[in-house]
């Protein structure tokens, strides 16, 4: 029996905020005066007008000595060396792939910074350049690490580790980059049979846990035949909906917040998790659980 189609009035919209008695940092809006004094250094996200420092983006103030900057709440991804990102190949060029990583400029993945099949220290010949589309083609998703940042802010990626490479069957979820908590590892195997890659660029990859017993082929082989069982699919869909619920209520995303949200969501059915009030409830109880575990 299909679900009833939910149609609501905008005046009955659900409030999604989950702030519970915490110190909320002041949020500056564009044009708001940050400082009237002259002793400051103008940082990112600010501008000077009539001797006053004003915010040019909506965000929170950051102060280092006299350098004042405003960090936007919502922006594209600004990469840093060492970040784990998930990206999509958009173009195959000579000696490089162009990758969309949700940053202002497209990132590049050089052929010299991937592990090609057949050993790490293999010479890269012209043949390899012809074979590039065999390895990664347009539309493929990869996980990678930021190798360096060019002067114009665009990123150079690398996949020189077994954990990086082409992604197989799964779901991509996009959230704001600022919601991803930077932590020691961004690769998580949850005990519920789902593996997560929390890309710092706001792209999250959800896939079934793969038992990697095959020999090293540089991460370019995908298994198209394998059918993901229904129970795993349901878990993945639940995780996806939990992440979106947390993102909607602006709860930071990391392994424990996602696991808590998953636990809290089990009292609802999968289809119910798309309803705004259920999403808000999941986010709220996750937030409470996070605060409890912090104080313990």
């Amino acid at each position: 029996m299909p679900q009833k189609i939910q149609m609501r009035l905008a005046s009955n919209r659900v409030d999604t905020s989950v702030v519970i008695n915490r110190d909320i940092p002041a949020i500056y809006t564009p044009g708001q005066i940050i400082s009237n004094q002259n002793e400051f250094l103008r940082g990112h996200g600010t501008y000077e007008e009539n001797g006053q420092l004003k915010a040019s983006v909506a965000g929170v103030r950051e102060k280092v000595d006299i350098l004042i900057s405003v960090r936007p709440l919502k922006s594209r991804y600004h990469g840093k060396v060492g970040d784990v990102v998930v990206g999509r190949i958009i173009e195959v060029q000579q000696k490089r792939w162009k990758v969309n990583t949700n940053s202002i400029l497209d990132s590049v993945l050089l052929i010299s910074s991937v592990n090609l099949p057949g050993g790490e220290l293999r010479r890269r010949s012209a043949e390899d350049e012809h074979m590039m589309r065999k390895y990664l083609q347009e539309g493929d998703l990869i996980s990678a690490e930021v190798q360096s940042v060019y002067s114009d802010g665009s990123l150079s990626l690398h996949t020189r580790s077994l954990k990086y490479g082409k992604l197989g069957q799964g779901v991509l979820v996009k959230v704001f980059p600022s919601l991803i908590k930077i932590s020691k590892t961004h690769f998580h195997n949850l005990s519920i049979g789902v593996s997560l890659i929390l890309g710092t660029n706001g792209f999250i990859w959800i896939c079934p846990i793969i038992n990697n017993t095959e020999e090293n082929v540089g991460g370019f082989v995908q298994n198209l035949e394998e059918v993901v069982p229904k129970s795993i699919r349901a878990t993945m869909a639940r995780i996806r909906n939990c992440i979106l619920a947390l993102a909607q209520s602006k709860v930071m995303l990391f392994d424990s917040s996602i696991t808590y949200a998953y636990e809290e969501s089990t009292k609802y059915t999968l289809a119910e998790l798309l309803l705004p009030e259920v999403m808000a409830d999941v986010a709220l109880s996750t937030q409470q659980k996070l605060i409890l575990s912090e104080t313990e």
């Binding site: 299909p2 679900q3 189609i5 939910q6 149609m7 609501r8 009035l9 905008a10 005046s11 919209r13 083609q137 347009e138 539309g139 493929d140 998703l141 992604l167 197989g168 069957q169 799964g170 779901v171 991509l172 995908q222 198209l224 059918v227 993901v228 229904k230 699919r233 349901a234 993945m236 869909a237 639940r238 996806r240 909906n241 999968l270 289809a271 998790l273 798309l274 309803l275 705004p276």
Partner: peptide
């Protein structure tokens, strides 16, 4: 890409966001 499309193929009655085939997403009207 092709591989993701494979995942979207719905042999079981469950879609990527957990809906069934005949389900609608909630909507808001005014």
């Amino acid at each position: 890409a092709r591989i993701e499309r494979t995942y979207y193929l719905i042999s079981e009655n469950i879609r990527i966001d957990g809906r069934e085939r005949e389900d609608y997403r909630p909507m808001e009207i005014e």
